[in-house]
Design a protein around this nucleic acid. Structure first.
Length: 441
DNA sequence: ACCCGGGGCGCC
DNA sequence: TGGGCGCCCCGGGT
């Protein structure tokens, strides 16, 4: 198969999603809107009582607020933005908070409030007000625009609104995903590729340990734990082992970053601000070194891939989707390094996207016989549908088969798609649990 | 009434 | 100094 053969059926699939629309619970949204308004105004009052009423705008990103921090309060600038301005993002707030704990404890509360203020502001402006403004009055649905060739790598892009960035439970006190509610008599069904990018990575780099792990239906995060901490696999999967949780968190973060040229400093930052783990730079260096040594195939593939891109000046997915990388010719270290990371990332992210497009093509082919199955969303490694409750078993079987089919003859890593069912997108149950519950009734 | 870049942040 | 997006706000411009 060549990549061009995927595009036409995928475009059809996009049209279906836009036409069907995502059913929204407008009443719930209006309730949450009021709650958010109150929350935001409370936080703002608390902030004003500390700052004396500095203009912080809708998300504490005004010039006046920065001036207040760095000029009025004379706080140290701990972080710069990409364009070399004084940063005031969440990481900066956290560092300022820690600094104030030792130096100006009366301002610690301010940074906690600002972090909260931003979260609620984002929820309201993007996910409540934003989504509300996109509800079609006739259908009661949101009809986002899906662009099958909207990215450099072959992934979809989505806009008006971008429903691919719907907040997850862990980062959402109000349940935005619950705004999406199946219409009367229907359910939502979501099928999710399990670790598709890592599997594609294993396919590319041919690393023995990685391939073996997936072929045995194994736990790649445990395998990585075993590799970076140099402990037997049995210890890595032992939930009672010391530091099990911390080791697994670090292993996960390594797995997500490692194929794309993760640097020790990047790993350190990710662990600090995303996982709340303080890890020294040396420790991160050591972890990455262990990872490279433990997955020798991975390291070799990275070197070969960079070398090839240096000659061809493009990166390519397995089915031949190409991304040109003029940065490979640049003398500028930053530009060249960026092009190298693209050369590592594109085959993996792009091939994973191609695999999902191949699944979309098979689904499109089967839809005329299943007019009750309505595609609603694509979220990179996940497909969401709406369907009548009594068609559930048939639907899971059909879509799962479409997704798990071998994408092209050379692909020799198992592909797993996991199903989840629910009346609301924020409250989905894994298919196995759903069956168990149903049998008990 | 727009446009635009920068910063910031949501998701995979 | 992992990659891929789009949306919101701000501040400056036409």
């Amino acid at each position: 198969m060549i990549v061009e053969q995927l595009e036409s059926p995928t475009a059809v699939y996009c049209g279906m999603m836009k036409y069907n629309g995502v059913p929204m619970d407008k009443e719930l949204m209006l309730t949450r809107q009021q709650e958010a308004d109150k929350k935001i105004s409370d936080i703002r009052t608390a902030i004003d009582s500390i700052t004396g009423g500095v203009d912080i705008g809708a998300n504490a990103s005004t010039a006046a607020f920065k001036k207040y921090l760095y000029t009025t309060l004379r706080l140290p600038v701990m972080k710069m933005t990409e364009k070399n301005q004084q940063a005031a993002n969440d990481a900066a707030m956290q560092m300022l908070k820690e600094w104030c704990e030792n130096n100006k404890p009366e301002y610690v509360k301010l940074f906690e409030l600002v972090q909260d203020y931003r979260k609620w502001g984002k929820l309201k402006s993007t996910y409540i007000d934003g989504y509300l403004s996109h509800i079609n009055e006739t259908t009661g649905c949101i009809h986002p625009e899906f662009m099958p060739l909207g990215t450099e790598t072959g992934r979809f892009a989505v806009r008006n609104p971008n429903l691919q960035t719907c907040p997850r439970k862990t980062n959402d006190p109000i349940g935005v995903r619950n705004f999406i509610k199946a219409s009367e008599g229907n359910v939502l069904m979501s099928l999710d590729f399990s670790q598709i990018e890592l599997r594609v990575g294993a396919f590319y780099c041919r690393d023995k340990k990685m391939l073996e792990t997936y072929r045995n239906g194994g736990d790649i995060h445990a395998q990585t734990t075993s590799v970076i901490y140099n402990v037997p696999f049995e210890v890595a999967v032992d939930k009672n082992a010391p530091d099990y949780k911390e080791h697994r968190t670090i292993a996960k973060n390594c797995n997500f970053g490692v194929f794309y040229g993760l640097f020790p400093k990047g790993l350190q930052q990710t662990l600090k601000f995303k996982a709340g783990l303080d890890t020294s730079l040396d420790r991160c260096r050591e972890i990455i070194a262990n990872l490279k040594a433990g997955y020798p195939g991975l390291t070799k593939w990275q070197e070969q891939t960079k070398k090839r891109a240096q000659i061809t000046c493009y990166a390519e997915t397995w089915l031949g989707r190409r991304r040109y990388l003029p940065g490979m010719l640049s003398d500028d270290w930053g530009r060249h390094s960026f092009a190298e990371r693209c050369a590592l990332n594109t085959p993996i992210q792009g091939t994973a996207a191609d695999i999902l497009k191949a699944a979309c093509a098979r689904i499109v082919a089967g839809l005329p016989d299943r007019m009750w199955l309505k595609p609603l969303l694509q979220i990179h490694d996940e497909l969401v549908f709406e369907l009548p409750i009594d068609k559930l078993d048939e639907a899971v079987e059909f879509v799962k088969a479409c997704m798990e089919q071998q994408p092209y003859p050379e692909f020799d890593v198992p592909i797993v798609a996991e199903a989840a069912i629910g009346l609301r997108f924020g409250n989905m149950t894994e298919w196995e649990d759903f069956i168990r519950e149903r049998e008990q009734i």
